[in-house]
């Protein structure tokens, strides 16, 4: 990874270790989300872990390093798109089955990855919403400067 802001963030040791661990954290978050219908966890828990991997990067490398790679506008948009998709899933359930947020897909076989109807899909929407939202909350809180205002 090209680092354009080498003077920000923490020491070299922290940066080197972060380079190894942040992927593991991110992948663990994805695992929790995708297995949300089979094991404890789900969209919210996984989303928090994914947001924490970004927070980890921000702490180690400084916020400019992260913002050069992810677009804040895109994060904001993704957050609302995920929420809209969640509501639309509910409306599809309303018109296919007759109840808001009813399951309109096949249930599948128990203990397989693709099962439980729409729940994995909803988990992914929640994960995007929570991950983006929590990271943005962290970013905005961290970017306040006391001497302003």
């Amino acid at each position: 990874m090209q680092n354009n802001f080498p003077n920000e963030g923490m020491s070299v040791i922290v940066k080197t270790i972060t380079r190894f661990t942040v992927w593991l954290i991110f992948l663990y978050g994805l695992y929790i989300v995708l297995h949300g219908h089979l094991s404890p966890g789900g969209g919210f828990a996984g989303g928090v872990i994914i947001a924490l991997s970004y927070v980890h990067l921000t702490l180690a490398y400084g916020k400019n390093f992260v913002l050069a790679r992810v677009d804040k506008f895109a994060m904001n948009s993704l957050e609302s798109i995920a929420a809209i998709l969640f509501v639309l899933t509910g409306i599809v359930g309303l018109y296919v089955v007759g109840n808001f947020l009813a399951n309109f897909m096949g249930i599948g076989k128990l203990y397989t990855l693709i099962s439980a109807g729409y729940i994995p899909m909803l988990n992914i929407f929640i994960c995007v919403k929570v991950g983006m939202g929590l990271y943005l909350v962290f970013y905005y809180l961290a970017s306040f400067k006391p001497q302003e205002g």
């Binding site: 919210f44 929590l134 905005y140 809180l141 306040f144 302003e148 205002g149």
Partner: peptide
């Protein structure tokens, strides 16, 4: 509990933001 944790997260984040803005105004 999961739901109430989510709600508490929202309230805490909002109150932290308000506290920071108050600190900007009143020092």
């Amino acid at each position: 509990v999961l739901t109430s944790i989510v709600i508490e997260l929202g309230v805490t984040a909002l109150m932290a933001a308000l506290a920071i803005r108050i600190y900007q105004k009143y020092d």
